[in-house]
């Protein structure tokens, strides 16, 4: 289930997304590609993520995108479907995936903005289709949050958050 309420990503969804990212990585000659949701949660990545902290990256990229959406509305646009940040050695292109996720492509002088844009345009409908299927599917039954899990989590909270 997506949008409001709890949502879940299944192993087969992730495998499909990983395969799409892997192909994008080589076709666009990227350093790495990351996928995150619109609330700033990291989903998956491909390529040389190296020292990059995906959790922090996801929270900042989602905020960047959310702020740009609001700027677009101030200008009378529905949204900005992609954002480009140019660096000296590396650059980044971020794009909306069906209003549900954000795809980030990070590239260096092995690629060009034109190539990345072109490949991204081809990829986005395929990634959006996976998210749409996830959204249509009923939540997986028998999740981990049974009473025994909740009791174990409460114990862990008491242990960790003891200040």
């Amino acid at each position: 289930m997506m949008a409001d309420g709890q949502w879940a990503i299944a192993a087969e969804d992730l495998a499909r997304l990983d395969a799409l990212l892997a192909s994008f990585l080589s076709e666009a000659r990227l350093r790495c590609a990351l996928l995150l949701d619109r609330t700033g949660r990291f989903l998956t990545a491909a390529g040389e993520t190296g020292e990059l902290d995906p959790t922090t990256f996801a929270s900042l990229a989602a905020a960047d995108f959310a702020a740009s959406d609001q700027l677009a509305q101030l200008l009378g646009e529905a949204d900005f479907s992609s954002l480009y940040h140019a660096g000296e050695r590396q650059s980044m292109l971020l794009a909306d995936v069906g209003g549900q996720a954000i795809l980030a492509a990070i590239f260096d002088d092995r690629s060009t903005l034109g190539l990345v844009r072109l490949q991204m345009r081809a990829l986005l409908p395929q990634v959006a289709a996976v998210f749409a299927e996830m959204g249509d599917r009923a939540p997986a039954p028998g999740g981990p949050l049974d009473p025994a899990w909740l009791a174990a989590a409460a114990d862990e909270i008491d242990r960790l958050f003891n200040g």
């Binding site: 709890q6 990503i9 992730l14 949701d37 609330t39 700033g40 949050l145």
Partner: peptide
Amino acid sequence: MSMINYASREINCKL
């Protein structure tokens, strides 16, 4: 809107 990632076996919650 918590996310349960069954593939990487992760639960993420936003406070």
